[in-house]
Design a protein around this nucleic acid. Structure first.
Lengths: 232, 232
DNA sequence: GAAATAGTGTCTCTCAGACAGTATACC
DNA sequence: GGTATACTGTCTGAGAGACACTATTTC
């Protein structure tokens, strides 16, 4: 780490914390964007985020959560660091550093506030091309999507796109949306049984045909990884 | 990302870039540490790093590489981001943010300069406990070691701990050192053949018994990942 | 020859993919 | 009954683990 800090010698880069928050709605992967109210890129869409407030935030995780809460009233079910983007050319104001988080939330836990304001919206990642997006945020969303895809291959993370109680069919659908391909229902069930991360509830729920078993994530368990990927 | 920057409102956190540089020497995993010349933690060992110089560095990757070059005269064969550590309590000077890289180098490409100075040294990660280490760097090294271990299970990254030309036996030994367990030679060979990332050289080299085939990483190829882990 | 390391052949085991077959709901 | 979705049984295939076997070098 650094020697004693000399403000005269090192100009400080602009440092911000942003989040790529995904959800799955109607078999479509959505990302949360906010409309910028000030320069640069006023009026364009950008990832929710902002500056660390060192009087409030204990660390950057807290900044990410606080900014999501403030701007969108959402507390994600899953949060991890994606990457830190930096460079002289990604912000017209000069050298900038952005710590980007990658977050997941169930669609039902997310829509209440978002639908009441017009400067925050869920955007289908497929439709990002056509949208005016600020900074390098289009690229960052794509990186996050790749990470989510990878994680869906070898871990249970997609459960964090689901409501508290869910069926195998819903879980399968979320995974298929993330991967962009179908997977064998049998494979999902084998994985659920292998992990011991979920528990069966006492109730079942109607779902078109035969009633479906309800599951939920066991309280307090950690995310489970597998030693073999699903096929790509 | 952030709205317009107001220095009066947001005090800037201290931002630095550090690297955890590993190598494998004599079947032992080593990490590069430098002795601090100034407060805080003067005289203790710390990860090599420092401040971004926004007049020189195009991005933080370049800062990491520049600092390694300046302090240790090493250019790593592999470099990726590990994590960004932040918080109010990890530096006595106040809220700090440190972007930490994870890097690998062959032992032979690394020792020339290091052995001539006494404020830079390779430390066995097993011996870190007994050493006075600054900040949370002990914890960070452990996180980096876990990442390296994971990567060794599902990717070819350990080749970046090897010199340009190497044998299956050397590759096997590096992997075993990183994992702390033996692996089947057959498994290594199967993986080498599956990836097409290495090429056989025309020469063989003596190695105690029968001559061993020399390999090298094909120029320009990317790191290859596998869909199944080695067992842990 | 023995010792040491390199390399091959091949069996087992685990788990994802595939898909047929059964179960239970609604109409 | 028909249709839709839930769930099970079981075969195949890929790749890691294990380990016996052969090959080539030095002594």
């Amino acid at each position: 780490m650094a020697d004693s800090y000399d403000i005269r010698k090192y100009k400080n880069p602009l440092f911000t914390v942003d989040s790529v928050l995904f959800t799955v709605k109607d078999a479509d992967l959505k990302v949360l964007l906010v409309k910028r109210a000030s320069d640069p890129f006023t009026g364009q869409w950008a990832l929710p985020g902002g500056f660390i407030d060192i009087d409030i935030d204990h660390d950057a995780d807290m900044t990410a959560l606080r900014k999501l809460k403030e701007k969108t009233n959402i507390t994600p079910q899953y949060l991890e660091q994606l990457h830190t983007y930096s460079g002289v050319s990604r912000d017209p104001r000069g050298f900038s550093v952005t710590l980007v988080y990658f977050a997941l939330v169930a669609e039902g836990n997310a829509s209440a506030h978002v639908t009441t304001v017009d400067d925050v919206k869920w955007t289908s990642v497929g439709e990002l091309q056509d949208l005016p997006v600020a900074f390098d945020h289009k690229y960052i969303v794509e990186q996050a999507r790749q990470r989510l895809k990878q994680k869906a291959l070898y871990s249970m993370v997609p459960v964090y796109c689901l409501p508290e109680y869910f069926t195998v069919g819903q879980f399968k659908s979320v995974i298929e949306t993330i991967l962009g391909k179908t997977v064998q229902r049998k494979t999902i069930i084998r994985r659920i049984e292998a992990t011991d991360m979920l528990e069966k509830m006492d109730e079942k729920v109607r779902s078109g045909g035969r009633f479906a078993q309800l599951y939920r994530v066991k309280p307090g368990v950690d995310i489970v990884n597998f030693e073999r990927n699903l096929s790509t």
